[in-house]
Design a protein around this nucleic acid. Structure first.
Length: 924
DNA sequence: CGACCCCTCT
């Protein structure tokens, strides 16, 4: 790596000297940010990218989760007379200073209050002792902003920003003297309102889903900033019986789309459920917080509450991922933690003391696990045996790189907009400049020993070797195809674009961007690079980004090329592409070529083959090859075949396969349950579904995520709406599938009103409905007879599909509004189908509208099916026109229209019975 | 060096 750097850096007059990331464009920088995974990465990034701060500020709005565990600020001065310097550091690796800034000197006489969105907040008193002054200091730039003096003089209970300063509509809130004060950033005055009479002191302000919440002990408030500052109590009930909840300093924290009340004193957490009326604190299970860690400030000397922070995926930065941990920070020591849900067992000390007690790293259950996962060179053991001296630390800064949780997300000012402020009374100080256009390499900050073992190189900001570049490209291809040209240029600059791995990656990047031509040019430009891995990468790369036909063609070319020995991986890739296309002839051809080249297929390739036949509609072939598979089947093999049966409507066979799989002692996984539950849902096999539910519990599978959705769907489809509701209530995460299944379940079983109120709850929860959801909503309106509501929903839809129109036609038909139904069919912008006409016919039959029915039949004469004839005949019959009814039946027989026998399934005592109707045209 | 399979909503 270093050789590469040197070679390029020393080339005179040819290329600009590489400055790590500095030569990459801004949009690419943002992609790269999402990939930084350790504080060392961060240190390298900051050291090599002059625009790092701007890049972070703009990335914060797009990244959904916190990038890192929180970092801290320490304030130090080498000697008494030297100016104070703030150092940004990772408490787990306190020897490394990530960034340094000189704070304004007027802070000397002020008190540190708290930290908010990367700003340290200080308070002080005006000389008159009538006002309180504040300074809000950007901890990365040292820039400070001061609101006008706040008209009170007393102790500050709590304060916070509602968003970073440069966000539009950011407010600074202060609670003091039983009043709430708000300063709209940039304005020249404070607004004020009184706190509710029975409240003591608001402790936290948390933006969540467009609302600003405040917490006072256990009471939740919403804060309105406009048109005037006001506080409103939120009634929240408890999901568990708590006669006298004693949560002892609970705190609010946002985890993605959940607002959580952490009651660390009793080791429990409650999620705010806004979909119920009134809102509810729902007790959370350990499982639901698995991917989160929480950070608390050490409060021993702090009177002011300092809200905790949540961090997603602690594994990402070396935290312990298998459980939810809360982490404390105590100055001069590293992170330490305890397991939230095991708190109750550690009650040997007084409960309220626990919040403050320091749990030493020795107390960890799994120190090995922790050590293994530390992602760089400073291990915990080394840290312990060699205590480091950290200079006096005055300020803790816990929310570095957090983002404002969905508060006014749509009103964001451009990144790094200048603060719209008059210069505050103490002069602004800006050290160093936030972003200079001139590339500049800041000196590496080496405090207290610098980078240990030299493994963190400041030159490693951008990958300079093929392997690193390949890893970067791969990560980018998932979401950031737009980076293709920039990365390509970067690779070319390094002379690495000729490397096969890099080139393959670039091809995929171009494909991710939809640029087939650029990708092809790259492929064709390297005829020499034809080996099986590279070609397979081409196949999968094309398939992954939707170029399925091209993928298969590439595979055929590769199979025909005697210079390339195709293998099982290539075969699997080809089968998978054919499966997605769903073309049986193509699939067979791929299979033929694989057989012809005598490829030794592994279980993955066999599974792909079975899946390919199934998805191409040849379930028999899928089953045949499943049975003939000469390799040991794995769980995917069984899952694939179960889905194959289910897809083909052979539901009993699917469930039988589940039994067979048990007999073969293959441990089912989530996909197994999804497939089996899906079969039960289609079959209406409620007892089997219930058994599966219980079995899942025994196997330790939670009813959440995809499995939870499948379970919920099964109960809903089997008519067990109450059990469906139970599953729904027990789910930690409800996505669009969850809501859709539940809404449909309610709608189909006559609870249209409930379905509609759930739909409202879904929208409140911020889950975006899809077409199927809306179909469920229309179905609910239809079944509940809410005609106006249904029409309104249809009008509100951006692009209704034929199914949606069908549902509304059905609804109008049932309501007897046949004119409107017919008009809607005529007016709808999509092509009518048989279903929609049949539904109109059914309405004619129900309302005895012979004339309209005849009109419809005349229109439909070419492609009317048996059902239509039956409906027509019944329409005549119910109007007493039996002669004409018989005539229609005769016409039907003459035209040799067969009615597919109606079929009905019902489960009695766990056995599914099938009823078949007598073919309609056999009725004479 | 790398490249591969299954699973929820009408």
């Amino acid at each position: 790596m270093e050789n590469t750097c040197k070679r390029i850096s020393n080339t005179p007059n040819s290329m600009p000297v590489l400055q790590g990331w500095a030569d990459l464009p801004d949009d690419l920088l943002q992609c790269v940010l999402a990939l930084l995974s350790s504080p060392s990465d961060l240190a390298a990034f900051i050291a090599t990218c002059p625009n790092w701060h701007a890049a972070f500020r703009s990335a914060k709005s797009t990244l959904r989760t916190t990038l890192f565990r929180p970092l801290a600020i320490r304030s130090c001065a080498s000697s008494g007379d030297d100016p104070v310097v703030w150092e940004l550091f990772d408490p787990a690796k306190p020897t490394i200073c990530i960034h340094r800034v000189t704070p304004p000197d007027f802070l000397a006489g002020m008190d540190y209050e708290c930290c908010s969105y990367g700003h340290a907040i200080f308070s002080g008193n005006a000389p008159s002792l009538k006002d309180t002054t504040f300074a809000i200091v950007d901890v990365f730039t040292g820039t400070s902003v001061s609101p006008p003096p706040c008209p009170f003089f007393t102790f500050v209970n709590s304060c916070a920003l509602t968003a970073p300063l440069d966000y539009h509509n950011s407010h600074f809130l202060v609670e003091a003297k039983h009043s709430l004060f708000a300063w709209r950033v940039g304005s020249d005055h404070w607004s004020q309102c009184s706190c509710p009479p029975n409240s003591k002191a608001l402790e936290q302000f948390v933006p969540f889903k467009g609302q600003l919440y405040a917490l006072e002990y256990q009471q939740l408030y919403t804060v309105k900033l406009e048109p005037q500052l006001s506080l409103e109590e939120v009634q929240v009930v408890w999901s568990v019986e708590m006669s006298e909840p004693d949560l002892c300093e609970p705190s609010l924290v946002v985890c993605d789309d959940m607002l959580i009340l952490l009651a660390a004193s009793i080791g429990e957490a409650f999620r705010l459920d806004l979909s119920s009326q009134p809102a509810m604190w729902v007790k959370m299970e350990e499982e639901e917080l698995k991917e989160w860690a929480f950070f608390f400030d050490e409060k021993r000397e702090a009177f002011r509450p300092r809200p905790p922070l949540s961090c997603k995926n602690p594994q990402r930065w070396g935290g312990i991922g298998y459980d939810s941990y809360s982490w404390f920070f105590q100055r001069e020591k590293a992170f330490s933690g305890f397991q939230l849900f095991q708190f109750a067992e550690n009650m040997h000390v007084q409960r309220h003391m626990l919040l403050y007690s320091w749990i030493h790293e020795d107390d960890f259950d799994g120190p090995e696990a922790f050590q293994d996962q530390m992602d760089d060179e400073v291990s915990y053991a080394a840290h312990k045996s060699q205590p480091v001296s950290v200079p006096t630390c005055q300020y803790l800064c816990f929310d570095f790189l957090t983002h404002p949780n969905s508060f006014s997300p749509h009103h964001r000012a451009p990144a790094m907009a200048p603060y719209p402020l008059p210069p505050p009374s103490p002069p602004q100080q800006q050290l160093p400049p936030a972003s200079s256009s001139k590339p500049r390499r800041p000196p590496p900050h080496r405090s207290h020993g610098g980078y240990k073992n030299g493994t963190v190189s400041v030159d490693s900001g951008a990958p300079h070797d093929a392997r690193g570049l390949r890893a970067l490209i791969k990560a980018l291809a998932a979401e950031h195809g737009e980076a293709a040209p920039a990365v390509h240029a970067h690779a070319a600059k390094l002379g690495l674009d000729g490397r096969r791995a890099v080139r393959d990656g670039l091809v995929e990047l171009y494909l991710a961007r939809g640029e087939l031509a650029s990708a092809r040019a790259l492929v064709d430009g390297f005829p020499a690079g034809r080996d099986v891995v590279s070609c397979t990468a081409m196949v999968t790369g094309h398939a992954r980004h939707g170029f399925l036909d091209e993928a298969v063609v590439l595979f055929f070319a590769m199979a025909d090329d005697r210079g390339v020995a195709i293998d099982a991986v290539a075969a699997a890739a080809a089968f998978s592409a054919c499966a997605q296309i769903g073309d049986l002839a193509l699939g067979r051809e791929a299979h033929r070529r694989v057989a012809e080249r005598k490829v030794a297929m592994d279980v993955v390739a066999w599974n792909a083959l079975v899946d390919m036949y199934a998805k191409c509609g040849d379930a028999a072939a899928a089953h045949r090859w499943f049975r003939r598979m000469p390799v040991k089947k794995n769980v995917v093999s069984w899952n694939t075949m179960m889905s194959a049966f289910a897809r083909a409507g052979e539901l009993e066979e699917a469930l039988a396969l589940f039994q067979e799989m048990q007999a073969a002692a293959v441990r089912p996984d989530d996909a197994t349950f999804v497939a089996a539950l899906g079969a039960c849902a289609q079959l209406g096999a409620l007892d089997t579904g219930r058994w599966l539910h219980a079995y899942m519990g025994r196997m330790g599978h939670s009813a959440d995520g995809v499995v939870g959705n499948a379970l919920l769907d099964m109960y809903a489809k089997c008519g067990a709406v109450d059990q469906a509701t139970e599953v729904f209530d027990g789910m930690a995460r409800r996505d669009v599938y969850t809501y859709t299944s539940m809404i449909l379940g309610l709608a189909m079983h006559g609870r249209g009103e409930d379905a509609l109120s759930l739909f409202a709850g879904m929208q409140r929860a911020g889950v975006t409905p899809n077409e199927v959801t809306l179909l469920g909503v229309l179905t609910a309106c239809c079944h509940a007879g809410l005609v106006e509501e249904g029409l309104q929903q249809l009008n509100a839809m951006p692009e209704p599909r034929i199914e949606h129109y069908g549902c509304v036609v059905d609804m109008l038909g049932r309501a007897g509004r046949l004119d409107e139904a017919e008009e809607l069919i005529a007016a709808m912008p999509v092509h009518s189908d048989a279903l929609i006409w049949s539904s109109l016919l059914a309405a004619c039959r129900a309302h005895g509208d012979v004339e309209r029915a005849e009109r419809v039949m005349r229109r439909r004469v070419a492609d009317a099916d048996a059902g239509d004839y039956v409906l027509m005949s019944n329409t005549y019959a119910s109007n007493g026109r039996h002669g004409e009814a018989v005539k229609v039946r005769g016409q039907m027989r003459r035209n040799e229209i067969d009615k597919v026998p109606g079929c009905s399934l019902i489960e009695i005592d766990g056995v599914v019975h099938e009823f078949k109707a007598i073919p309609a045209n056999s009725i004479r």
